[in-house]
């Protein structure tokens, strides 16, 4: 009996050892074999960059330029920026895809980028030309806006002031501007709408109606779709997702006065890129109509190219008429103060 147990445990231990060795040797087997003349183009992005877009980029580089793509993912945009910053000057990275306008001031201040204006760059709006020096190229955009659940909220608010109504007590989920990209944009939205004197007053008044201020979009939107609250901070494009994949018009956006706050995603070439020429070809492709038409159903953002086709799920959703934005250089100087005051109000 005892001996039997011992044997079983010995087998268990042996299995563990085999597993451990197998686990370690995996990478060796997976490493690329055969010799390739060109070194792969090394591009950094964030973790949720869609697999479909990666496939399109890989195939384009392979077929048109006989070059492999090495896409390295970071847990979020913050991790991506930190990697670009910590590895600067080492000549390890060619390009990045996926920082938004909130990183622009810091990218410029660190002088990390090699300017390039992609061939055939055409933008749907003037506001999308975020950098006159072309250190970054915009490739998609959307508006930060509240969304609501029609089923649970038959009488949605019509104006900003309606949001303060006691009947919405505990019914709104917002995002923390200190930890979330869209949360930051929404804080700037309130500054843009109510001015530096008025934005804190907005937050003071909406505070009793908040269920919680979630740390990130994933958490906040999860609470919303799990039925915890009928209003959430998201994008003007969010309802298109549910129309496309759930065939449902249950969710809709709230665009008070037709306005949303602009969020633009950009790509750029690193100053110390080992292969700047191929990085330029990558950027050319990213802003081309072919790649741009893949954007809506993968990123659920609008493509920047005016000719890129929009699927029906997008055209059925109300679009913001006016995308507000504050000057990022100014924001980078003032944001810390705004955040500190905001935290005083919200805690």
């Amino acid at each position: 009996m005892v001996r039997h147990d011992f044997l079983r445990s010995a087998v268990l231990a042996a299995a563990l050892a085999v597993f451990a060795v197998a686990g370690c040797s995996r990478t060796v087997k997976e490493s690329p074999q055969g010799e390739r003349v060109r070194t792969p183009l090394r591009v950094y992005t964030y973790d949720s960059f869609p697999g479909e877009l990666q496939k399109a980029l890989t195939e384009h580089l392979k077929n048109t330029h006989d070059t492999d793509l090495e896409l390295v993912r970071f847990e979020d945009t913050g991790g991506l920026f930190n990697a670009l910053y910590l590895e600067r000057g080492k000549g390890k990275v060619d390009a990045f895809i996926g920082l938004d306008n909130s990183y622009l001031a810091r990218l410029y201040a660190q002088d990390l980028l090699l300017p390039y204006k992609p061939r055939d760059l055409k933008l749907a709006m003037d506001k999308l030309a975020v950098d006159p020096l072309y250190r970054v190229s915009p490739y998609d955009y959307g508006g930060v806006a509240l969304n609501y659940d029609r089923l649970k909220l038959p009488d949605p608010p019509k104006t900003w002031e309606d949001l303060f109504d006691p009947r919405y007590r505990g019914k709104i989920v917002l995002l923390n501007p200190a930890t979330s990209g869209p949360g930051r944009s929404f804080l700037l939205f309130t500054v843009a709408v109510f001015g530096e004197e008025g934005y804190l007053d907005f937050w003071r008044k909406i505070k009793p109606n908040l269920l919680t201020v979630a740390a990130g979009w994933t958490e906040g939107y999860g609470l919303f779709t799990q039925g915890e609250a009928p209003m959430v901070l998201s994008y003007d494009t969010s309802p298109a997702y549910h129309r496309e994949f759930e065939k449902s018009d249950r969710y809709d956006n709230l665009l008070f006065g037709g306005r949303a706050y602009l969020q633009v995603e950009v790509a750029g070439i690193l100053k110390d890129a080992p292969n700047p020429e191929m990085a330029r070809r990558l950027l050319d492709y990213i802003v081309s109509p072919g790649f741009q038409s893949l954007i809506p159903l993968t990123q659920f953002m609008y493509p920047v190219h005016p000719d890129a086709a929009l699927p029906e799920s997008f055209t059925a959703v109300t679009r913001a008429e006016d995308y507000l934005s504050l000057d990022e250089e100014m924001v980078s100087r003032r944001l810390e103060g705004w955040l500190a005051d905001w935290e005083k109000v919200m805690r």
């Binding site: 847990e75 930190n82 923390n176 200190a178 919680t212 201020v213």
Partner: peptide
């Protein structure tokens, strides 16, 4: 929420 955080959350926020 906003009102309650830990040192680990602060570490992350400052870094990321």
């Amino acid at each position: 929420g906003v009102a309650f955080s830990t040192l680990e959350v602060k570490t992350y926020t400052e870094m990321h």
